[in-house]
């Protein structure tokens, strides 16, 4: 008689790797073989995870087609099971998986599109948080400004990508052939900040100087040090972050 822990570990091998031997002996096979019964559960597990990935990575699916996507997602699901029952946070390693996925190696931009879609998903699911009121900042004594540090909204993430993944994702999801034709894969790297503000989820491209300032600002770097190397429009950039709801608090 296997203890429950051993039984569940053996069952897991069947769910993840189709290794049924360890659990088959514990299963009644009247009418249906133990392996057939296990397959019902495995198929449900697998298809639920594929659907979860499909929800998060719609542009990736458009780029590779449904059959290829299902194959890649199934392979990923076997190697990277979720760590909890909260499936909205499932699939974070899918971009790196795709980057190393040999059958997709010709689509050099695919992993960047996945990184972009993951950031959108993170922004959609992030916890709610209060937005920093500019009046709070106005109340800080100017001589304390240099010591301020800011906290980003939980939805904020930064992406520095080799390909114009935002443009590719928007074009393929819109099914816009003209926009797809306009994508220039050699247009150089893009730097993006993604977040969920009062008006929804937004991805904004930033110039290199602005990207560095805003990403360091959101990483909590002290304002005084940040301003030593900041672009000339730093005050405007800071004001824009407040207006867009990317900051939740400041402290000195």
């Amino acid at each position: 008689m296997p203890a429950l822990l051993d039984l569940q570990r053996a069952f897991a091998a069947s769910m993840l790797h189709e290794e049924d031997d360890a659990v088959c002996g514990a299963v009644v096979d009247d009418g249906f073989a133990a392996a057939e019964r296990l397959r019902i559960y495995r198929n449900t597990c697998r298809s639920t995870l594929i659907e979860a990935l499909r929800m998060t990575y719609p542009a990736v699916e458009r780029l590779v087609g449904r059959d290829f996507f299902d194959m890649a997602a199934s392979r990923y699901a076997g190697a990277h099971p979720p760590q909890s029952g909260y499936l909205n946070e499932y699939g974070g390693e899918f971009p790196e998986f795709l980057a190393a996925f040999e059958p997709a190696s010709e689509l050099t931009y695919l992993a960047d599109v996945a990184r972009f879609e993951w950031a959108l998903g993170v922004a959609a699911n992030a916890a709610d948080a209060p937005v920093l009121d500019p009046l709070t900042l106005a109340a800080v004594d100017p001589q304390d400004h240099a010591a301020l540090r800011f906290e980003p909204h939980p939805s904020v993430s930064f992406l520095s990508l080799a390909y114009p993944a935002d443009q590719i994702a928007d074009a393929v999801l819109a099914g816009d052939e003209a926009a797809i034709a306009q994508v220039d894969l050699s247009s150089g790297p893009v730097r993006l900040v993604v977040h969920r503000g009062p008006d929804g989820i937004a991805a904004e491209r930033l110039e290199p100087g602005a990207y560095e300032f805003v990403s360091r600002l959101c990483a909590g770097e002290v304002l005084g040090r940040l301003l030593e190397s900041a672009p000339a429009d730093a005050p405007l950039l800071l004001a824009a972050q407040l207006r867009k709801g990317r900051l939740t608090a400041c402290r000195s």
Binding site: R9, A12, M15, Q83, S84, G85
Partner: peptide
């Protein structure tokens, strides 16, 4: 039912054996 073991979660309601041990767990 159960869905998780060894840090891996399975997105389904998997069956339990109905034993005294399982009941206490």
């Amino acid at each position: 039912s159960w869905s998780a073991t060894g840090g891996a979660h399975f997105a389904d309601l998997l069956p339990l054996p109905f034993t005294e041990e399982a009941l206490s767990i």
